[in-house]
Amino acid sequence: MKKRHAALAALALVGILSGCGQTKTQPADNTISISPVEQTTTEKQSGAVIEYLFSGNNTEANGITFNTYTYNGKTWENMDKPIGVYGMGLNNGTGKIIFRHDADTINVAYDIEMTFPSGGASTQYGDSSELSKLPTDNLTVAVTGQEKPIDDLAVDVEIPLVVRVFNTDGATHTVEVNAFTDPDSSETLKNCIFAEAITVKFVHDDSVS
């Protein structure tokens, strides 16, 4: 399986003193703004719903792709071909990405629900076949996503939106989103029985109008 590493976009939030207050520069053209939506405590703990809003900053991107990775004990492995949707405008307002699964079952895949700034919607249904094989006795999960808005995400840059780590010790664990980009930094990841990450990339495809 081909392994790919995510590259994090640099964030440029420059404060400029002007008049009586401080203002922020506008995001650069041909970038995406994406921000997490705060969930209820129950949803946040279970990871049953993880939601983001996004919009284009005069971007040429016309598609959104998602990749699923699993952790093999040392590195993240790309498990599937990218799934995605193409041919939508991203500069006409705000879109939404929602990762959702049955709140009563933690070892189940996310469905990915998308609504687009230009109108329309799409749902990508997850495959739970691997997750369903996990032992259920004392099974716990730690879930995280991006916690802060990103105003200048460049086209074709991949970032993690969900990281899930499973254990069977019955203990409560936490995980940071940088467990994807720097797995050696996460003790929770090192000691888990299974972990997955879902990434997003806003892309431009010349073959799609």
Results as ranks from 00 to 15, higher is better:
residue 44 K to I: 04
residue 23 T to K: 07
residue 134 L to W: 05
residue 105 T to F: 08
residue 177 V to S: 08
residue 53 L to D: 12
residue 56 G to A: 04
residue 201 K to E: 15
residue 28 A to Q: 11
residue 130 E to V: 10
residue 164 R to W: 01
residue 97 I to L: 01
residue 85 V to T: 13
residue 39 Q to N: 04
residue 57 N to Q: 11
residue 51 E to W: 04
residue 63 G to Y: 02
residue 207 S to M: 15
residue 112 I to C: 06
residue 70 T to C: 09
residue 86 Y to V: 08
residue 93 G to H: 03
residue 43 E to M: 04
residue 52 Y to S: 03
residue 169 D to G: 03
residue 114 M to Y: 02
residue 187 E to F: 08
residue 135 P to Q: 05
residue 41 T to Q: 13
residue 117 P to T: 07
residue 159 I to N: 07
residue 45 Q to R: 12
residue 11 L to H: 03
residue 31 T to Y: 01
residue 157 V to C: 11
residue 175 V to L: 00
residue 202 F to Q: 02
residue 33 S to F: 07
residue 103 A to E: 14
residue 19 G to V: 14
residue 25 T to V: 10
residue 166 F to M: 14
residue 5 H to Y: 14
residue 187 E to G: 10
residue 95 G to A: 02
residue 98 I to G: 02
residue 196 E to V: 04
residue 203 V to N: 06
residue 197 A to S: 12
residue 102 D to V: 07
residue 69 Y to D: 13
residue 32 I to H: 02
residue 141 V to A: 06
residue 116 F to L: 00
residue 151 D to F: 09
residue 108 V to A: 04
residue 196 E to S: 11
residue 131 L to E: 01
residue 162 V to D: 01
residue 185 S to M: 10
residue 74 K to P: 09
residue 190 K to L: 00
residue 125 Y to V: 12
residue 63 G to K: 04
residue 184 D to I: 10
residue 5 H to L: 11
residue 194 F to E: 11
residue 202 F to W: 02
residue 87 G to I: 01
residue 146 Q to A: 10
residue 154 A to V: 08
residue 28 A to H: 06
residue 14 V to M: 09
residue 190 K to P: 02
residue 192 C to Q: 09
residue 87 G to Y: 04
residue 168 T to W: 05
residue 124 Q to D: 12
residue 164 R to N: 00
residue 121 A to C: 06
residue 77 E to D: 12
residue 33 S to T: 13
residue 118 S to E: 00
residue 89 G to K: 14
residue 10 A to W: 02
residue 205 D to I: 12
residue 165 V to D: 08
residue 116 F to K: 00
residue 76 W to V: 09
residue 156 D to L: 05
residue 91 N to Y: 05
residue 35 S to D: 10
residue 142 A to E: 06
residue 106 I to F: 03
residue 21 G to T: 15
residue 50 I to D: 02
residue 102 D to Y: 05
residue 51 E to K: 14
residue 52 Y to I: 00
residue 44 K to P: 06
residue 193 I to M: 08
residue 78 N to I: 05
residue 187 E to Q: 12
residue 98 I to T: 06
residue 93 G to F: 05
residue 193 I to R: 03
residue 61 A to L: 03
residue 204 H to N: 14
residue 197 A to M: 07
residue 157 V to T: 14
residue 65 T to W: 07
residue 25 T to L: 06
residue 127 D to H: 11
residue 175 V to T: 09
residue 19 G to H: 15
residue 208 V to P: 09
residue 79 M to L: 10
residue 100 R to K: 13
